[in-house]
């Protein structure tokens, strides 16, 4: 990056460190922080959406739909996320390609499963083999977001399902007394009020989500823990201009600080959000706020 970095052996400690920390390989680490943050930003709303769908399905009066919603939440919550990630991404990818294959190549007559091979027509590949590398990268990123969203959607669904039931019965009865239908009462009374009950559970889910990002490498993404391991491991002079011993501890220490800081920041933001949501609610917290203002 800097002109002096062409000959690292001649550098003094501080300059050496500066050059070392700006190698292309380190850029991979810094870039990975962006990937992780973007993944968190996309996964949170996606999981909320899936969870909302799951909770709605579980509340349904149509039994099969209700069973489906409940089964989704129970099964996915029962499986450790590592076990899920280890096979689910490949399965999901194959499912998408299979559907595209049925649509795009109806006349394809060779077997899709040949022994252990999974072969669909070239037009059904996701992404197409001819796509540039960034399309492949984006696709595996989106698949990872979807997988995370499915896992955390089950937990979010469980929280939202509980929150919907926690809205005081009197509120719903009042809505019925005003002649609202079940759907209207749900939209106008339950959904606006449930958030205050759901937020503590959702906040915790967010904290768990932050800390599960080290599993991203299982989904084919190079996350910060992957780079920390890769950069921190013993480097011999044959393959790098910056040889060093086992430095994994320092890289992991850096990650530890990052995770702690991010957790702290999240706690502060979520605390403020809770304060905002509690305003005007018929709960102990809302009551305290009202009294303080008066």
């Amino acid at each position: 990056m800097f002109a002096m970095c062409t000959d690292p052996d001649s550098l003094t400690q501080l300059d050496w460190m500066l050059c070392y920390l700006t190698t292309g390989k380190h850029m991979g680490l810094y870039y990975a922080f962006g990937t992780v943050l973007l993944l968190l930003a996309l996964t949170a709303p996606a999981a909320l959406l899936l969870g909302f769908g799951g909770a709605m399905a579980a509340r349904s009066h149509f039994p099969p739909l209700s069973w489906l919603g409940k089964a989704y939440m129970a099964v996915v919550r029962g499986v450790p996320d590592i076990a899920f990630f280890l096979f689910f991404v490949i399965a999901l990818d194959q499912l998408f390609e299979l559907v595209r294959h049925k649509v795009k190549c109806p006349d394809w007559d060779t077997e899709i499963w040949q022994g252990s091979d999974f072969v669909v027509c070239p037009a059904a590949k996701l992404p197409l083999a001819t796509s540039p590398q960034w399309v492949h990268d984006t696709y595996s990123f989106l698949i990872a977001v979807l997988t995370f969203a499915i896992v955390f959607g089950a937990f979010a669904g469980n929280v939202l399902y509980g929150a919907m039931r926690a809205v005081p019965r009197g509120q719903v009865e009042t809505a019925e007394a005003y002649g609202m239908t079940r759907g209207q009462a749900f939209r106008r009374v339950i959904v606006p009020q449930m958030w205050v009950y759901a937020l503590p559970g959702l906040s915790n889910l967010w904290m768990v989500l932050i800390k599960s990002t080290p599993l991203l490498f299982l989904l084919g993404l190079q996350d910060i823990v992957y780079w920390a391991r890769e950069l921190g491991s013993t480097q011999t002079p044959r393959f790098t201009a910056y040889p060093h011993g086992d430095w994994r501890m320092w890289y992991f220490l850096f990650l530890l600080v990052f995770y702690l800081a991010f957790t702290k920041l999240s706690e502060v933001v979520l605390g403020r959000l809770m304060l905002r949501l509690t305003r005007g609610q018929a709960t102990l917290g809302g009551e305290t706020q009202r009294k303080a203002a008066a």
Binding site: H136, T240, A241
Partner: peptide
């Protein structure tokens, strides 16, 4: 006709394959 072949590697096993200082696969 298939002009792009995607090559899978591990990138963590020098000298066979590894990530070099520039952050690219090498070996």
């Amino acid at each position: 006709a298939q002009d792009v072949v995607r090559m899978g590697t591990e990138g963590a096993y020098p000298p066979y394959n590894f990530i070099n200082d520039a952050g690219a696969v090498d070996g």
